[in-house]
């Protein structure tokens, strides 16, 4: 891939173009990606079917009865020619707080992370809850937000054997990313706690709590606060 110029438009079937803006994951990509999302909404209007932003790219899906790929490409070229980063994106990005009960019953990998880092569990918690993260992408499941980047001392590869059932709200780490599971699902992330926040709610306007570019803080709360906020304190099922 190296040597090819960016941004570039890559064919994605008869109804899509993948806009490749960057080669590497970087927080500095976000103002460009959020600006591109906004400009594509305007440029395509009714002919827009879906937008799928991710770390370095945006997949634009259009109505193939309204536009040909060539026509869609022209619109995208025009958008890219005048694209300016969403300068206020960092400042304006909503700050979302996720109340999180860090506890070994909720987050069985807390000791693993502490051992790897040569730190106490309390320090691991302070480190995770002490930073502000950005949402780089959503995917895997409705409302599942990939956030980064955690401090180097928290970096930890995925579990070798994924769990069959990770409880809703579980907060985890994989590599240098962190996330919270919106619903019960299989998963291989290292679990360190559980949030009471409802990350995806079909009855809420907008459905998801987190969007691309949002700033996120995990706020350490006690078990009592966690339960008062509606968190489910039931421990993980034995045998994963």
């Amino acid at each position: 891939m190296a040597g090819r110029t960016l941004p570039r438009l890559e064919a994605a079937g008869l109804d899509g173009w993948l806009v490749r803006l960057f080669e590497a994951i970087d927080e500095a990509n976000l103002p460009w990606l959020t600006a591109l999302v906004r400009d594509c909404e305007t440029a395509f209007g009714e002919a827009l079917v879906d937008l799928v932003p991710s770390y370095t790219t945006l997949l634009v899906v259009f109505d193939p009865l309204a536009l040909t790929p060539a026509e869609a490409r022209q619109r995208l070229s025009a958008v890219l020619a005048s694209l300016t980063p969403h300068d206020d994106a960092d400042r304006e990005a909503p700050l979302r707080e996720l109340p999180t009960w860090y506890d070994e019953r909720m987050g069985p990998e807390l000791p693993r992370l502490a051992e790897r880092a040569g730190m106490s569990v309390a320090d691991i918690v302070a480190c995770h809850a002490g930073a502000t993260y950005r949402v780089y992408a959503l995917g895997f499941a409705p409302g599942f937000a990939f956030m980064g980047s955690v401090a180097e001392c928290l970096e930890c590869p995925r579990l070798e054997t994924p769990r069959k059932k990770v409880p809703a709200g579980s907060v985890g780490i994989a590599g240098r990313q962190t996330a919270a599971y919106p619903a019960v699902s299989p998963g291989g992330w290292n679990l360190i706690g559980r949030t009471s926040a409802r990350l995806f709610d079909r009855d809420r306007e907008g459905f998801g709590l987190l969007a691309l570019g949002d700033r996120v803080r995990f706020v350490a709360v006690t078990r009592d606060e966690f339960e008062r906020l509606g968190g489910d304190p039931r421990p993980m099922e034995a045998g994963r």
Binding site: G13, R20, A137
Partner: peptide, 14 residues
């Protein structure tokens, strides 16, 4: 030659 890439949007039929 590519083994894995940074995750990106997937269209129908990919």
């Amino acid at each position: 030659r590519l083994t894995s890439m940074i995750s990106e949007g997937l269209g129908l039929g990919a």
